[in-house]
Design a protein around this nucleic acid. Structure first.
Lengths: 251, 251
DNA sequence: ACTTCAATTTCGGTC
DNA sequence: GACCGAAGTTGAAGT
């Protein structure tokens, strides 16, 4: 695990080191004044300014300013990074095909270049996801309602996969859509689509119930549920992680 | 625009420089071996490994490995960064409230610390957005269909704001939902919700048309549109930027 | 490669 | 601050 650093390198110096770092499969950061041009799914242009450029050996590129979690420009994994000196200035270009996208970073000044040898340790274990909520429901179907019996998860339908499909105490089909946090109209619409799809599968006149299981829902989502005759059950992922109910609704 | 670099600093050395950098409002990068714990909206844990930690003066924090566009762990803007040495090891903690979230990075080795003074140059101009598509439609309403007359944009409805609302040559109300790229069932559902909302506003029996204007749509989206009696018009943002039609449908 | 959906989505606009 | 929807969303899983 090495870290090579060049402080205020000449552009050509930076180029040599950059190409060596690419060859080594290093993670590279470049800090300096640059302009950025992107063209691909959309197009964007960024005037001169101080930025941090991160180039990863998997082909990702990130352009960060001093603000925001999201890079101001970027390139997803799978690109090829190339560097060159044009008119005495360092230029880094990351290109990918399908879709065709190009990111062009032109430096007027390079303050620092660093190359890091990185390996392993990438797996994260996240807790509190929708998958955890699903496990909770299957563990304790009463969470949906007394007498609820899960029959399938990710059950296929004309409208897409249904999170949990089952039957209520009276034997009626129930579509359950799970959301780990407070939801808006989109989730209500999603549930409605699934319920409609199942209703079309069933013999004429069979009532299909729809349950949106989420910690809480917005007023508009509530309205949409009401319009469609769907229900909301308040529950979230196990183990009091967030995704709680800020507004507080439901009886 | 200064770049201060410490190469393999002692943990306590790194701490001093880190605190000075926070005071100066610098953008900081730390490269080394560390573990990462996150707890907040969800929770996650990341074992020891070589990572790049980026700390921004706006309170953002990013933990990057050598792979992926998305940080393996992060904290959005608005956090407070604090550093300390515990048991001789550097620890960086980024905390925010509402929602309560904590990111904890513990270094076993610091390979490099760099602090950059950054200023300005943040504004990006993106071309090919949904806003561009809207302008195109208002410029040339025939794009929707001959005789279409736009009456309002972002028109309020019970189901939310409608991108473009207007009337067709026969005077029937038309809801237009714009999408800059190929869309799936979600967009069809969104349009259906808007159309239903407008239908409820209109005197009984008034037919309300719904048009999904997008470069292309998936089969499932097409099915949903058909079920609801809605239409698709193939068009995208102006100026042949991407968002084209890979599958190729529609007559 | 395409579709579908989740995400610690993030981000911006509006109320 | 909550709500709503766009995004060059990204990423993962299934087909």
């Amino acid at each position: 695990m090495t870290a090579t650093t060049l402080h205020e390198p000449a552009h050509r110096e930076a180029l040599w080191e950059l190409e060596a770092a690419f060859d080594r499969g290093d993670l590279v950061t470049l800090f300096g004044t640059c302009t950025v041009e992107y063209d691909g799914r959309a197009a964007s242009s960024l005037g001169p300014g101080a930025r941090l450029l991160v180039l990863k050996p998997d082909g990702s590129a990130l352009v960060h300013t001093d603000e925001g979690r999201t890079p101001v420009n970027w390139q997803p994994p799978g690109c090829e990074h190339r560097a060159a000196v044009r008119d005495g200035r360092l230029r880094v270009r990351s290109v990918r095909t399908s879709p065709a996208e190009t990111l062009d970073v032109r430096f007027s000044a390079v303050d620092q270049l660093a190359a890091y040898g990185v390996t392993g340790g990438r797996s994260v274990e996240v807790v509190g996801s929708e998958a955890d909520l699903k496990r909770r429901v299957l563990d304790d179907p009463e969470l949906v309602e007394p007498g609820f019996e899960p029959l399938a998860t990710e059950r296929a339908s004309d409208a897409g996969p249904i999170d949990v499909f089952g039957r209520d105490a009276e034997g009626r089909p129930v579509v359950v859509e799970l959301k780990r946090r407070r939801v808006g109209p989109d989730a209500a619409g999603q549930l409605a689509r699934y319920v409609n799809a199942v209703e079309r599968e069933e013999p004429d006149g069979t009532e299909v119930r729809g349950v949106l299981l989420a910690p809480s829902i917005t007023d508009r989502a509530r309205d949409l549920l009401d319009d469609e005759g769907l229900e909301h059950v308040a529950a979230g992922p196990p183990e009091g992680d967030a995704a709680d109910d800020p507004a507080g609704d439901d009886a």
